[in-house]
Design a protein around this nucleic acid. Structure first.
Length: 461
DNA sequence: TCTGGGGTCCTAGGACCC
DNA sequence: TCTGGGGTCCTAGGACCC
């Protein structure tokens, strides 16, 4: 079963503010460059749609339309109520977004059969309970033999409708639909298919798999071939772990000033650090995203040799990455993201023998783990190899990297034999210069200018 | 006043390792 | 007579979804 809450954001607003009931309501970004998140059914009459620029929605909707920026905490709270009801029916609930979920009815506590009428009645009771528990919101559901068909079914009788596609009916329902109905077919794929004369899912089903693979690649080609036949065995997955966290901001007017851009990065990094902390996650890869006045978008990313949850580390890397971009024409959007998420900061892993970070804050040259501005880096790297901590193994060793990490004069030692040492440093100070990497025996190491910070790493031998 | 924000997955090339 | 094959990781961009 697929369940979709009807005009969700707008419906919550109308529930909480009686004066909005029966009136057009548009929820979305109210700034100059905002777009519509949700339009109530009254606003859809005038052509307001999700993803439409807000100015366009304002042009179309009559006086008396409410334009709102949204109250996400209220939406999340209402969503939780609905998801709890779904989980009371089956343990296998996959929440796709705040307003959408799949439920595996085969795993239900009291699974309804396919008999005519009984299934519809079961869904009717579910929808009634949702409406009652949420203070009047409605949802639409679709039930079928696969995720794809269930989702298509849920869209067929909106709002507050139930649609069942029974076994054997799949292709009769699917094949007349436009190709856009297939999961993974968006505007670009639909346009390419049209050049081959493929308009409907039925047309798509007549294209050979080898042709589709030749045109769209292995993954998408094979997927199109199967989905066009209603061959969809994707499982209902209860919860997936996050792979990335990001935050971005579109400016009301394009920004050229690097000081302003870096201030924005600081704001974004703060938020990311907070969100990482809230979920006890740490990230290795930092990504900066920049969109220009002409809407071209570039990303720059870099992977740290360690995982971090620290906003200042994320910010420092973000500023460095932004430094490599040309902002002279102005940016309309700036974003910052982290990925390569793990549940443990490598800094916090303990060493065999009971030596644990951060208690092991030591004078760097003594442990041989790093160097300070002005140090002879080649000598420091050599000392690292000769460190008394050499030979210790870090618990949970997995990557074979990051033996020693030093930052701002504090040594973080992850002991190991150092078979080969590389010194990576960033300099000079503000703004951060480029990061350069040297191997220990590189003569350029001694000749390099004093760095702002140094990171020494090696490969365990 | 053209085009948000938060995600996932895929592809492709290059570096690097054995 | 120049230079294989398999694999992983990293980076950048694009398509797609809600």
């Amino acid at each position: 079963m697929h369940l979709d809450l009807d005009a969700f954001f707008a419906a919550v607003e109308q529930r909480d503010k009686p004066s909005l009931r029966g009136r057009p309501v548009v929820v979305g970004g109210l700034g100059g460059r905002g777009v519509v998140s949700t339009a109530s059914y009254e606003a859809r009459v005038y052509g307001a749609r999700s993803a439409m620029p807000m100015v366009e929605a304002r042009r179309r909707c009559p006086a008396g339309t409410a334009f709102l920026s949204g109250r996400f905490e209220a939406y999340r709270a209402t969503s939780r109520v609905v998801m709890e009801i779904l989980r009371s029916r089956s343990p296998l609930v996959e929440q796709v977004s705040v307003d959408e979920a799949y439920v595996d009815l085969a795993a239900a506590v009291d699974p309804p059969g396919w008999e005519q009428g009984r299934l519809e009645e079961w869904c009717g009771r579910l929808l009634a309970e949702i409406t009652q528990a949420t203070g009047g919101l409605t949802a639409s559901v679709g039930v079928a033999t696969s995720k794809m068909l269930a989702k298509l079914a849920s869209e067929m009788d909106k709002p507050a409708g139930t649609t069942v596609v029974r076994p054997g009916q799949e292709l009769d329902v699917l094949h007349p639909l436009p190709v856009r109905a297939v999961a993974g077919v968006g505007p670009a794929t639909a346009a390419r298919l049209r050049t081959f004369g493929v308009e409907t899912v039925g047309d798509l089903a007549r294209v050979s798999e080898s042709d589709l693979v030749a045109i769209f690649g292995v993954a998408q080609g094979a997927s199109l071939h199967r989905l066009a036949r209603a061959d969809d065995d994707r499982a209902v997955v209860v919860q997936r772990e996050a792979k990335s966290i990001s935050s971005e901001e579109t400016f009301d007017t394009d920004v050229t000033d690097r000081t302003l851009l870096e201030a924005e990065l600081a704001r974004l990094a703060e938020g990311l650090g907070r969100r990482l902390g809230a979920s006890s996650l740490f990230a290795r890869t930092i990504t900066v995203k920049a969109r220009s006045h002409d809407f071209t978008t570039v990303t720059r990313s870099a992977s740290l040799p360690f995982a971090t949850g620290d906003a200042t580390v994320i910010l420092r890397e973000g500023v460095r990455l932004l430094g490599g971009l040309d902002v002279s024409q102005g940016l309309r959007l700036l974003g910052l993201g982290v990925s390569g998420l793990t549940g443990h900061a490598q800094e916090e892993l303990s060493l065999e023998g009971g030596l644990a970070y951060p208690e092991a804050t030591l004078d760097l040259p003594d442990v041989g783990g790093g160097a300070e501005p002005g140090d002879d880096l080649a000598a420091a790297a050599a000392r690292a190899a000769a460190s008394p901590l050499s030979g210790r193994r870090r618990e949970g060793w997995s990557t074979g990297q990051d033996v020693v990490h030093e930052e701002h004069g504090r040594g973080w030692v992850w002991g190991s034999g150092l078979g080969r040492v590389t010194v990576r440093f960033e300099g000079p100070t503000t703004p951060p210069g480029p990061v350069r990497t040297f191997s220990a025996d590189d003569p350029g190491l001694s000749a390099a200018p004093p760095p702002a910070w140094v990171e020494v790493s090696g490969t365990p031998s």
